[in-house]
Design a protein around this nucleic acid. Structure first.
Length: 592
RNA sequence: GCUCCCGUAGCUCAGCAGGAUAGAGCAACCGCCUCCUAAGCGGUAGGUCGCAGGUUCGAUUCCUGCCGGGGGCGCCA
């Protein structure tokens, strides 16, 4: 078997042995294959005997022994050994492992199988607000969503990213009114001969300042507030002048978003953007359909859905308000509209929402409602991929010293600046080359620090740790890869395809085992939508490489066979690290 | 009040379809550059896995309760 998790093959053999020994059919799960705990002299172990022993009525140890007696090693494994209370230790044969590595070295997919039935999957991520600068609150959604998109595509799925922009709602009345006034002031101040250029760009140099100005006016000036409210109505009723100003606002914001995405190397474009406003056209229909299906009812003047299974302890049902008593719609309605659109018009079979965990209840209720309405089915699933908050070193939500939200642009620039300083201290590259590398290192550090923690938990943002010269960081991986690249460069030779892998030192075999587990890492990462598992795998692999690098001279070994073998290990390791980093959305410079 | 999540080394985190002596990285201490990038490697020290019960041959992992922290809960999105 070239592609797939080796553990599956081992599980099959354990299952076969169990069948022969006890005439029992067990699943691959029940074979309980795990990578063996280190320093126990085995590559994998099966813990199947413990579960089986009870059914059969003999001791786990005896069960394990019977399994080993019927186990077919083929040329893949050494004879299995029983150990402890009933563990079956499995060790790959060196020659088999060597041939396997040789095959992986020439496999484009590095042993990773494509999914048998590709699906169209919507991934909803990033979702910044128009007329506001992107801030750390958007960081995780953007980074995790991007990585998931890459992972799913690598598996062979068709991914349709959707950037659900916050481009609608009552604040837009005040923003548009403010924009309108600023435009008037500017044109008054300009001299007659100046070309009446499209003025919005200069008017909104800083989106946050712009928003704050509008808010201040709204709070301080009742007449302005009135005009703002009128604007909301004008916007909703499609007033042309108002619509045009709104579009300017959206366009200007999208330019800003694009800058951030470019800096992050996140492949989101305006084509992926469908703002909340897009779904306005469907909202009355959503309410009507839910009423028709007897899912929506009037309650305290509002139209509500009370999906099954959501009560507030005292058995009062929890509502999804889909039309307010004033006739307006809420994000409950919009999310239902977006979901129906994605399921029906975009014909997705899965919809992933990469949104923070505080929204968990909301999505549960939206999905439950969509199920009752028939928009979601067995073959049309939605999944909330929640994530925790970014905390400051004080353990509270990350903020600036002034207490404001941290602008994403500032944060990313600082990451690059800090990387630049570090490179200046120790890089072998010239100033010109260092620029690109500083970008890769700085942005990589931010992304990796985010992705390497359990997605659902909060994590503490620390420059010191993420840009640390040592430890489990993006730089460590990038550095390991750069060293490999350097060796390969200096070898001045291509690795011949007919190279034989030989294990002369334990570090080589140790590395080989890690390399063979790339498919398992991808599998675990995608099924759980947990990028940190890929991070952990890459870190372990890079560590294994460091051990190899310390102990195994590549360019000047004892003989030519070793040189070729080691170069092949180098090349494969580099390919895996680069592919892994790529799936995390992180660049791997050839030199540091 | 109801509800969800979290609590593992001094710090930051893995591990948790129950399984062998609980792993990393920082920080501390001790070593290793006439040799492929020392942003590296090896070693020492550091843990009642919040507390108490329960299920089990076996629990950091599953269940219950408690303590501590955070989030969410009808007209913001």
């Amino acid at each position: 078997m070239l592609r797939g998790d080796l553990a599956n093959e081992l599980a099959r053999r354990i299952a076969d042995a169990a069948k022969e020994a006890f005439s029992l059919d067990i699943t691959l799960q029940q074979a309980v294959i795990r990578p063996s705990t280190p320093d126990r002299g085995a590559d994998y172990q099966s813990n199947a005997a413990f579960g089986l022993a009870k059914k059969i009525g003999i001791s786990p140890r005896e069960t394990a022994t019977r399994i080993t007696e019927h186990f077919h090693t083929g040329d893949m494994l050494d004879p299995p050994e029983v150990s402890g209370a009933g563990f079956v230790n499995l060790t790959l044969q060196d020659t088999w492992l060597a041939h396997h590595i040789e095959a992986l070295a020439t496999d484009k997919r590095l042993g990773t199988p494509e999914v048998p039935t590709p699906q169209r999957i919507i991934v909803d991520y990033s979702g910044p607000n128009v007329a506001k600068e992107m801030h750390v609150g958007h960081l995780r959604s953007t980074i995790i969503g991007d990585s998931l998109t890459r992972l799913l595509r690598f598996q062979g799925h068709e991914v349709v990213p959707q950037n659900h922009l916050g481009d609608w709602g009552t604040p837009f009345g005040m923003l548009i009114e403010h924009l309108s006034e600023k435009a008037r002031e500017t044109s008054k101040g300009e001299t007659g001969n100046s070309t009446p250029t499209h003025s919005t760009q200069s008017n909104i140099a800083d989106l946050n300042v712009f928003y704050q100005e509008a808010r201040q006016k709204f709070d301080a000036d009742p007449e302005f507030a009135d005009r703002a409210r009128t604007r909301v109505l004008a916007l909703q009723s499609g007033d042309q002048k108002t619509q045009s100003l709104w579009k300017d606002l959206v366009a200007e914001s999208e330019r800003h978003f694009q800058e951030v995405y470019d800096l992050l190397h996140v492949d989101l474009t305006p084509e992926n953007a469908r703002g909340e406003s897009f779904y306005n056209q469907y909202l009355p229909g959503i309410v009507a359909e839910l009423e028709e299906k007897n899912l929506a009812v009037m309650s305290e003047g509002a139209v509500c859905v009370f999906p099954d299974g959501f009560t507030n302890g005292d058995n009062t049902p929890v509502p999804l308000i889909i039309r307010k008593s004033d006739g307006g719609y809420t994000y409950d309605t919009t999310d239902l509209g977006a979901l129906r659109f994605r399921a029906q018009k975009l014909a997705a079979s899965q919809i992933f929402y990469v949104v923070g965990t505080p929204q968990r209840l909301h999505f549960k209720m939206v999905f439950a409602t969509a199920q009752q309405a028939g928009w979601l089915t067995e073959n049309m699933r939605a999944e909330h991929i929640g994530f925790g908050s970014v905390l400051g070193e004080d353990g509270k939500i990350l903020r600036t010293r002034a207490g404001g939200s941290v602008k994403l642009m500032d944060l990313l620039r600082e990451a690059i600046d800090r990387a630049t300083v570090i490179l200046a201290e120790r890089s072998e590259l010239n100033a010109q080359e260092r620029q690109d590398v500083a970008h890769a290192v700085g942005i990589g550090a931010v992304k990796y620090a985010d992705l390497c923690n359990d997605r659902e938990k909060d994590y503490v943002f620390s420059w010191k740790r993420m840009l640390a010269m040592e430890g489990n960081t993006a730089v460590y991986l990038q550095y390991a890869n750069a060293r490999i690249k350097s060796v390969v460069r200096k070898s001045n030779s291509k690795v011949p395809a007919d190279t034989s892998i030989v294990f002369a030192h334990p570090a080589e075999r140790n590395l080989a085992i890690k390399l063979s587990r790339f498919p398992a890492a991808i599998e675990a990462t995608t099924t759980g939508r947990e990028p940190h598992k890929l991070c952990n795998y890459l870190y372990e692999t890079a560590t294994a490489f460091s051990g190899f690098y310390e102990n195994c001279p590549v360019l000047h070994p004892e003989n030519e066979e070793l040189r070729a073998s080691r170069l092949m290990l180098c090349a494969l390791t580099s390919n895996i690290i680069e592919k892994g980093l790529d799936l995390l959305g992180i660049e791997a410079p050839a030199r540091l």
